[in-house]
Design a protein around this nucleic acid. Sequence first.
DNA 1: AAGTTTAGAGACCATACGTTCGGTTGTCAA
DNA 2: TTGACAACCGAACGTATGGTCTCTAAACTT
Lengths: 213, 213
Amino acid sequence: MKDLSVKQQRILDYIREFIDDHDYPPSIRQIQQACEISSTSVVDYNLRILERQGHIKRDREVSRAIEVLQGGRRAQRVVPVPIIGSIAAGEPIPVPSADTWSADMSDSIEVAPEIVGDRENVFALRVKGTSMIDALVNDGDIVILEQATAARDGDMVVAWLKNEQEATLKKIFREGDRVRLQPANETMQPIYTDAGNVEVQGRVIASIRRQIA
Amino acid sequence: MKDLSVKQQRILDYIREFIDDHDYPPSIRQIQQACEISSTSVVDYNLRILERQGHIKRDREVSRAIEVLQGGRRAQRVVPVPIIGSIAAGEPIPVPSADTWSADMSDSIEVAPEIVGDRENVFALRVKGTSMIDALVNDGDIVILEQATAARDGDMVVAWLKNEQEATLKKIFREGDRVRLQPANETMQPIYTDAGNVEVQGRVIASIRRQIA
DNA sequence: AAGTTTAGAGACCATACGTTCGGTTGTCAA
DNA sequence: TTGACAACCGAACGTATGGTCTCTAAACTT
């Protein structure tokens, strides 16, 4: 891919900036004015070059139809994941309902779409207290989960221990009629318990810790 | 805020879908066709209602100038953070250079803009091995950093220990001419070392663990 | 029953916008 | 000098597009 001329770089930067500001692409004439180009044809000329080199994609005959590509792929948007509650030892986690779903987005965390993927029923929990430290999750961290009642061996899940009345974050392994709950932290010891005592409430997709507010 | 009519909801959904597909908003006539509306004036009529209710924002006299708002705010795009290398005990972390900066985005992670904030010189490191487990960071995790040579007490930093020839992730506290490096995991013990032995290489902004690929 | 509001239909207009075309300028190699 | 070529200029063109105007028709108020 050849280097861009100063003018082409400026045009590209302007398009990026404009989309950032307006959420829709600029017209050719707006590019012309902003980049101090004397004619629309020059803009068109350079846009064609940018398109040939794969920096943008244009739809012909359509106004403002410029997409900025980065690395050949379109820039994606963040997806909001609802934080439906918190997880702590001794407290049940709230069950995601249709109500909390689309409606109350007041508390949510935005994540990159690649984390969520194609999964549906994704939600987040805020971790309260340090009781999940053996899962390498600290107070204040946020875990992203996919709603699930079953899990494959080795999956990290939110398990509700009925007898102990306690939610915990562990890797799950079925061993006969018993279940091994293995902390993510290898230096910690696993818990063995009865299969009937464990209720899977969700599979962990990712966890996020923000060190600085 | 009043409820939306079926037609209005359909229009809104279509706009969202269209932007997802094309990265630029649809024209009024495209909305008309897709939502099986008989006239442009009806689309206009409903768009005005949507705008009055705060679901979208329109710029007058400009084609395709529809922004979809969610929660009153514009949907933001992810920002790519370059993964410039990995961090492991006994290996120096690579110094971010202008080269690795804008140029080689081949390896990067996309994060929500709220994580990066206004900070510049943000980069990411992949964690190798379990040596950072006392910072609640496991093998394969990714830490997001801001380039910094100084740090305030209590900041989580990447510290390079000169004598030990080792990079580590700890909270830093200056205590006279000594430095206390405190693990994030409260059950672990701090390290005390000479101030001259410590070189701050970056402040940790966040860390991300992807449980499922 | 008569008026008012809400939702829609269809046509028309002005213009914002992408496209194209003929011409100019500067550079470089033959 | 000439020709080729890339970059640019200015204007004109056609149409895609948003806005508006008039007219219906149903759903309400009163």
